[in-house]
């Protein structure tokens, strides 16, 4: 999901995707595994790719979302929004109790 979400911002190559994810510690990804996932996403028709000579001395493989990829990420985002809202509602009592504890400590 995170990889597809990263590609919503446009064409990216592997290292760029990793850098985007590195900014969010909980989404950090083992580097070699990224290419296996991208390969499978491509097999599923969710992303497309192309080798481009970026003038760095070696080509880079750029990925972008297909129509099916866009639809999948939208569906996932919808599911995630509902899931996190439900979980937040469940966690509310715990948050209130945590705030009260902090007030008591002060």
């Amino acid at each position: 999901m995170a990889i597809l979400a990263t590609l919503m911002q446009g064409r990216r190559y592997g290292l760029e995707i990793l850098r985007s994810l590195d900014g969010t510690a909980s989404l950090a990804l083992a580097e070699g595994t990224l290419y296996l996932i991208l390969n499978r996403l491509k097999g599923d028709g969710l992303v497309e790719s192309e080798w481009i000579d970026a003038g760095t001395g070696h080509p880079r493989k750029y990925y972008w979302l297909t129509q099916a990829g866009h639809e999948r990420i939208r569906a996932m985002a919808k599911f995630w929004a509902k899931f996190s809202a439900d979980l937040n509602a469940l966690m509310d009592p715990a948050r209130i109790s945590m705030k009260e504890n902090i007030r008591d400590d002060e």
Binding site: G14, L15, Y35, N39, T56, H58, K61
Partner: peptide, 19 residues
């Protein structure tokens, strides 16, 4: 072809990182 592509991509990644 798929395995060759993965190796090429990993090589490109390593080169990018080391450079």
């Amino acid at each position: 072809h798929e395995a060759d592509e993965i190796v090429l991509e990993v090589r490109s990644h390593i080169l990018e990182r080391i450079e």
